[in-house]
Amino acid sequence: MLLINPRPESLVDVKMHYCPGCGHGVAHRLVAEAMDELGIRERTIGVAPVGCAVFSDDYFNCDMIQGAHGRGPAIATGLKRTRPDCIVFSYQGDGDLASIGMGETIHSAARGENITIIFINNATYGMTGGQMAPTTLMGQKASTCPLGRDPQVNGYPIKVCELLAQLEGARYLERVSLHTAAHVIKAKKAVKKAFQNQVDGKGFSLVEILSTCPTNMGISPLEATKFIADKMLAQYPLGVYKGAEGGKIDVSRN
């Protein structure tokens, strides 16, 4: 019989350290498959964030650089301007991209920097132990809002795709999810497009991936996928926010 899902060459063949059911592994695979399919592994440079995915510099089988918390888009900018022949991506979590690094996120998008950003939104700080994230939902409990997110105290969650869609420099923005196999297959298309855009010199592309952190949510991996379906999708509708085929904004609640 024929193996139909060989491990992508762009992913080093090692066991990943992520917790059971964590979405990072799937997201890593999608990025690696996109690199394989576009034949860009050798000329790709990845930026690993601060957070659980810090170790992704060991996992992606391309040149990697690990940088300061939130500064991925700035580091990617330096790499891309210096090596425009290379494909540069920054892999970031919600605390990294939407809290401490929001300035770099917005300005790299405003500059229309020809880079690809993979943004993992799991509504919590994973590495540090489940603190409130900029994307934590209203009422969602976290170790720094034990009674649940309260707008009077903690304000409101940030919708990154909607925010960046206001910027002329942003070329392609899409929000996808990993909570079912069908959604994973859709997410793959978005990730690949975000890389294809860079190959084609089209400019700033960001894919927001709704993902799970069962450990810090204190629930099982299956319950965590249900949390995306029941709670996160309402706050973060999936769809293309910028750069849809035909130029139309296509946001669907699925």
């Binding site: 650089i65 940088g67 300061a68 500064r71 700035a74 580091i75 990617a76 900018t77 790499l79 770099e104």
Partner: peptide, 18 residues
């Protein structure tokens, strides 16, 4: 022209790595 000194030094971090 970076958006901040913080971004500037991190752009350098990336560029110098090449």
């Amino acid at each position: 022209q970076a958006e901040s000194e913080v971004a500037a030094i991190n752009m350098l971090y990336g560029a110098a790595a090449t």
